[in-house]
Computed example of a mutant assay.
Amino acid sequence: MEQKINLKQMVDRLLQGKKTSKIIFIIGIIGILLIFLSSVIPHKTNNSSATSTQETITSEEYTSNLETKLTELAEGINGVGKAKVMVTLENGIEYVYANSQKKSNDNTQDFDEGANKKSTDKNTLEQDVTVIDGKDGKQALVVTELEPTVKGVVVVCEGGGDIKVVENLTNAVTTALNISSTRVSVIQSATIS
């Protein structure tokens, strides 16, 4: 004869038992409710770094921003006066994308009766760029953005005829851009408007 016990009877029996079993039972019920609620309530995830659209700027915008900053820097140096700056780049902005790799090695060996052995190795490497859902659809996940390399800087300024001003300006530009002084040219202007 099979006895059927419903859930209410089981709860009543557990509640009539010892105090510790009541506490364990209540904690278990709360845990089950929390698990249920976590599966029902939608999660808010903070994947702003992964799903944010990468703000890509062009080399021209990068150069223009750099020239503006260098002009402000130059005009802040005593004796320079008004200045104009031109920056040339060796290369544009480069992006390093996240990717997954799959390597496989295949070794085949053939044996002849005359003890001749033939071995063939085949190595394959597959790389796939990681793609994420972005604001404008699917886009590659950028891991690193490499700034362009500065090829040269020309500064035309009112104080370019003074050797001390040229030295101070050259030191400022070479330090700011981490380039050699041979890549910086400071020239005195006739007039700058």
Results as ranks from 00 to 15, higher is better:
93 I>N: 05
180 S>G: 15
33 L>M: 14
110 D>L: 11
94 E>G: 01
16 Q>N: 03
49 S>K: 02
178 N>L: 14
136 D>S: 00
144 T>Y: 02
15 L>N: 14
183 R>Y: 05
36 F>S: 13
69 K>A: 10
35 I>H: 01
122 K>S: 07
126 E>C: 00
27 I>V: 15
47 N>K: 10
96 V>M: 05
133 D>C: 09
56 T>G: 06
171 N>D: 15
30 I>V: 15
165 V>A: 03
136 D>Q: 02
73 L>S: 05
65 N>Y: 07
154 V>A: 06
169 L>T: 07
181 S>T: 14
121 D>L: 00
89 L>R: 05
4 K>P: 02
58 T>I: 14
134 G>Y: 02
117 K>Y: 03
71 T>I: 09
26 I>P: 12
166 V>E: 14
154 V>D: 04
64 S>D: 11
124 T>F: 00
66 L>A: 12
147 E>F: 05
177 L>E: 10
35 I>T: 12
129 V>K: 04
122 K>R: 03
87 V>L: 13
42 P>E: 07
53 T>Y: 01
17 G>K: 14
90 E>I: 03
44 K>G: 08
22 K>A: 12
9 Q>D: 03
18 K>G: 07
161 G>Q: 12
84 K>H: 11
171 N>G: 13
123 N>E: 12
174 T>A: 13
128 D>K: 08
162 D>S: 11
38 S>W: 08
94 E>P: 00
122 K>N: 05
160 G>V: 02
17 G>D: 03
96 V>R: 10
32 I>G: 08
149 T>R: 11
189 S>T: 13
176 A>G: 04
111 F>K: 15
62 Y>K: 03
133 D>K: 15
15 L>D: 10
150 V>G: 08
66 L>I: 01
95 Y>K: 11
121 D>E: 04
148 P>K: 04
20 T>C: 07
45 T>S: 12
185 S>F: 10
81 G>Y: 05
133 D>R: 14
79 G>Q: 06
169 L>A: 08
101 Q>T: 00
43 H>L: 06
44 K>L: 09
62 Y>M: 02
193 S>D: 08
145 E>W: 10
180 S>A: 11
185 S>W: 01
180 S>R: 10
156 V>G: 01
109 Q>C: 02
79 G>Y: 07
21 S>V: 12
137 G>P: 07
58 T>Q: 12
86 M>S: 13
159 G>C: 09
6 N>W: 01
51 T>V: 13
151 K>D: 01
107 N>T: 09
8 K>L: 01
83 A>E: 09
55 E>Q: 04
59 S>D: 15
190 A>M: 06
165 V>Y: 06
58 T>C: 07
95 Y>R: 09
19 K>E: 13
29 I>S: 14
9 Q>E: 02
157 C>L: 04
130 T>K: 02
40 V>N: 05
155 V>H: 12
107 N>I: 06
123 N>S: 12
102 K>N: 02
66 L>N: 10
33 L>V: 15
93 I>D: 02
47 N>V: 09
74 A>P: 05
8 K>P: 01
46 N>V: 01
4 K>H: 07
95 Y>W: 05
77 I>T: 03
129 V>L: 04
76 G>W: 03
27 I>F: 06
83 A>R: 08
95 Y>A: 12
142 V>A: 11
139 Q>V: 06
82 K>H: 07
172 A>D: 10
45 T>C: 04
